[in-house]
Amino acid sequence: MVPGATAASALAGAREPGFWTRLSDLLYRRGGLVLALLLGPPLLWIGVIYLGSLFALLLQSFFSIDEFSGMVKYQLTLKTYGELLNQANLDIILRTVVMAALVTLVGGCIAFPIAYFAARYARGRVKAGFYIAVMLPLWSSYLVRVYAWKLILAKEGALTWGIDRVGLTPLLDALLSLPVIGGPSLSFSYMGTFLVFLYLWLPFMILPTQAALERVPASMIEAAGDLGARPGQAFRTVILPLALPGVVAGSIFTFSLTLGDYITPQIVGTSRLFIGQAVYIHQGTAGNIPLAAAFSVVPILVMAVYLTIARKLGAFDAL
């Protein structure tokens, strides 16, 4: 064997690129391939799994149940949607939408001043404490928080005890005696359900609002004051329009989460159903999957209408 030839062949073998080197070069030269590999799996998940299941749900809503056999009739019909117009089902839809709207409205009124203080005045450790205080409830289990509130709102709970200590028990009894929102105790009333919903979803209203207020230039607020605008005028004409996208984003979270929740009203509140509970019961205990699917379409339509109105009002122009 010739030593020179052996050295040359060894050198050629050492210089030959391996698989990973060739793959790296290919990905470097073709940026579109990298983008496809990165976005392919999540887009496949969204397109096939999520949208596919959503389409299957929509299709199920156009089927019906045979009243004699209880089996699903795979024939396209609007009969199931007609059942949503029954008084009992309309009450469920109206009850859920009103509750979601109230939680969103009150949540926005509470979240805005908190978010404004955090965006304009909180600095350093105070701001860090603000984020911890807002996020801390989300670190615990959802069920733990709901059951904790059930104990707090119970007739022998901490809230009733505190109200009794300050002498406001007659006021609580008067509220509980109201025909629609009252009940035997806060844990068995719409007021209790409302308070738990408000507690659960308030962070989802505060954080987007605070992020939007952070982007409002302080110089614009100062300029409004220099031009003679009163605090109320500055709020209506400068602060609120610029912060509106964040408020709308928070309201979308709060409204949609309340619309679809079925665990909270099952643990805290009366025996009257919400949309989430109706879906759970009809697809499980009752076995009426078409009606459950039709109920599931209702929040989608409500959110579509809400987003359309928000878009027409210009809420997304600054996004």
Results as ranks from 00 to 15, higher is better:
186 L>K: 02
186 L>R: 09
187 S>M: 13
187 S>D: 15
188 F>A: 15
188 F>E: 15
189 S>G: 11
189 S>F: 13
190 Y>S: 14
191 M>Y: 14
191 M>L: 15
191 M>V: 14
192 G>V: 10
192 G>I: 08
192 G>H: 10
192 G>A: 12
193 T>L: 15
193 T>E: 14
193 T>D: 11
193 T>N: 15
194 F>K: 06
198 L>T: 10
198 L>V: 10
199 Y>W: 15
200 L>Q: 11
201 W>M: 11
202 L>T: 13
203 P>I: 13
204 F>R: 09
205 M>Q: 15
205 M>H: 11
207 L>H: 06
208 P>F: 01
208 P>T: 08
209 T>A: 08
209 T>V: 13
209 T>M: 04
210 Q>V: 03
210 Q>E: 00
211 A>S: 07
211 A>W: 03
212 A>Y: 00
212 A>N: 01
212 A>D: 02
212 A>M: 06
213 L>K: 03
213 L>V: 01
213 L>G: 02
214 E>K: 05
215 R>V: 05
217 P>V: 03
218 A>N: 05
218 A>G: 05
218 A>T: 03
220 M>W: 08
220 M>C: 08
222 E>L: 14
222 E>A: 15
223 A>H: 13
225 G>P: 04
225 G>Q: 10
226 D>W: 09
227 L>E: 08
228 G>R: 06
228 G>H: 06
229 A>Y: 02
230 R>C: 10
230 R>A: 14
230 R>T: 12
231 P>Y: 08
231 P>K: 12
232 G>T: 08
232 G>M: 14
233 Q>W: 11
233 Q>T: 15
234 A>F: 12
234 A>M: 14
234 A>T: 12
235 F>H: 06
235 F>W: 09
236 R>Y: 06
236 R>P: 03
236 R>S: 11
236 R>V: 06
239 I>P: 00
239 I>S: 02
239 I>G: 02
239 I>M: 08
239 I>Y: 02
240 L>R: 00
241 P>T: 03
241 P>G: 05
241 P>V: 05
242 L>N: 00
243 A>C: 04
244 L>W: 05
244 L>D: 01
244 L>Y: 01
245 P>R: 04
246 G>Y: 00
247 V>G: 01
248 V>Y: 04
249 A>I: 04
249 A>H: 00
250 G>V: 09
251 S>D: 09
251 S>A: 15
251 S>V: 01
252 I>N: 00
253 F>S: 10
254 T>E: 04
256 S>K: 02
256 S>P: 00
257 L>W: 08
257 L>F: 07
258 T>M: 06
258 T>F: 06
259 L>K: 13
259 L>E: 06
259 L>C: 02
261 D>M: 01
261 D>N: 04
